[in-house]
């Protein structure tokens, strides 16, 4: 029984800061700065109204979600064949290559911010969704390869050989037989790619001219101080895509972690 208490205490601790954010988002700034109330005394939607009536907020969300989606698609589609190669073959330099890929997951984004700006400006992609989508590949592709390789190693080799004997060509085998077998692995990898691309700020801000939602949020800071209510409302809205993704994979979270490279 005490186990349940610890578990629920942990969940409450997780929820409190989130609750406070939601609470503040429904308060007017006057109420925020003058009184301390556990729930909004005068609930207001004015903070949300500001966001929904200003096109740059909407564009910011659309821009961010576009590069996240693009990044997830690119990462998974290049990682699939590579993960297959790592799980099935040993080839010249495979272990070094694998570690080199992982090192990129480890490289601090702060190190790359300025060179990325130079690089993507020089190829004319600065301030486009492609710049951010491609830049985020540096940490998502290695991660996707790592996760998918774990799932693929769980599929017996005999399946590959049987398919070959049955006359399947490699691309047909890969798409028709192999991919359905590791569908849950692709789901897990996509979940992680989405997650890390959505939460990243530094590169997204460096590579765009205040288009990503994270940089638009800095607009709540003005000469007259910070607009707390607006900041909280924007924060709540950025939680929604993540919450939706979790809701869709809720039955697979535990399974996903268990079946992956865990």
């Amino acid at each position: 029984m005490s186990r349940r208490i610890i578990f629920y205490a942990y969940l409450v601790c997780l929820m409190l800061p989130l609750y406070w954010l939601i609470n503040l988002s429904f308060k007017a700034n006057v109420e925020i700065s003058t009184t301390m109330t556990l729930w909004p005394a005068v609930p207001t939607l004015s903070n949300y109204a500001v966001i929904f009536t200003a096109p740059e907020w909407f564009d910011g969300f659309r821009f961010s979600l576009t590069y996240v989606a693009l990044n997830t698609i690119i990462s998974i589609s290049v990682a699939l064949p590579a993960a297959y190669a790592f799980s099935r073959y040993s080839f010249l330099g495979d272990k070094h290559l694998f570690f080199w890929l992982l090192t990129n997951r480890m490289a601090p984004a702060a190190v790359f911010a300025l060179p990325y700006f130079n690089l993507y400006s020089s190829i004319g992609l600065f301030d486009t969704v492609w710049a951010v989508a491609l830049a985020h590949c540096i940490f998502n592709v290695p991660l996707a390869v790592w996760i998918l390789e774990g799932f693929m190693s769980g599929v017996p080799r005999e399946i590959d050989e049987t398919a070959r004997i049955d006359g399947y060509s490699f691309p047909r085998f890969f798409i028709k037989i192999f991919i359905p077998l590791i569908a849950s692995g692709i789901g897990v990898a996509a979940f992680f790619c989405f997650m890390f691309s959505w939460v990243e700020l530094l590169l997204a801000r460096t590579l765009t001219n205040s288009k990503a939602i994270s940089s638009i949020m800095t607009r709540t800071v003005s000469a007259s101080g910070i607009d707390w209510g607006l900041l909280a409302a924007a924060g709540v809205l950025t939680l929604i895509p993540g919450a939706l993704v979790i809701w869709f994979v809720r039955n697979h979270i535990a399974k996903g972690f268990a079946l992956g490279r865990v």
Partner: peptide, 23 residues
């Protein structure tokens, strides 16, 4: 429990900062 536990992982990092600043 799993849904609540996964929630902080999908909060954008600047919003994590914002949440704790406000908290």
């Amino acid at each position: 429990g799993l849904v609540i536990m996964a929630l902080p992982l999908l909060v954008p990092w600047n919003v994590v900062g914002t949440i704790w600043l406000l908290y």
